[in-house]
Amino acid sequence: MRIVVCLKQIIDPELPATQFRIDAESKRQQSDNHPLVISPYDENALELALKLKEQTGGHVTLLSVGQPSAVSALRKGLAMGADEAALITDPAIEGSDAFGVATALARGIEKLGHADLVLCGCESGDWADRIVGPILAETLHIPCVTFIARLEKHNGGFLAHRVVEDGYELWEVVPPVLLTILSDETNTPRYPKVKDIMAASRKSIPTWSGADLDLDASRIGKAAVRAEVQELTVPTQESRCQLLEGEPEEQVAMLVARLRERKVI
């Protein structure tokens, strides 16, 4: 069974808000030499893939669309236990929207041959579009189930636990299928071991350009963007203090009323 996990490298989303700056020109977060990490849900998807490989066997391939720096995200994935990785990188792809990225990923998967399972994080830790996975499935002409927390082997296929507001939906899925993964106690990413980090640094990671994948230039990059970001701002958080006047009993009554109003109690 071939499992492909799509990984995105992003600026560490846990950076303090005070260090978040927006580039007015590109309407994106400034990189400012901030640490780069694997988008958190993508890491959950990888952990799920590795657990599946341990239980049922298989081959885990990592695929990323991004800057050349994304090689370090793929190396971490290899150190965690993935078998191979490839990076799709090309200045022409930069600035792509979800369609452009999904188009490039689909071509990458086709170049790999085939995939029984394609796993994506349910949303990226930066833009949180939540649509690269579904568009990729559409492009690959395979079914897609979103927001999967767990996956069990079942009747020659899998039973996928889909998180909904008040519980789980159980979906029987048969490969080939694309699943988008969210975090769960069963897919907390493992720490790579020192010896595996060393082994991963010796593996070669092929990089593919748009030309290598015969990407249609009209479907990728800034020119192909279908929805344009008009404005991007950092929300400001304000806290205010209101003093309740009167005797203690009145103050308590007012406080309780306010808390009820705001549905705190």
Binding site: P35, A79, V194, A200, S201
Partner: peptide, 14 residues
């Protein structure tokens, strides 16, 4: 090196 950074980040996360 990439390897050194990844080792550092792993222990940092740990």
């Amino acid at each position: 090196t990439d390897e050194e950074r990844l080792v550092r980040n792993t222990v940092r996360d740990f």
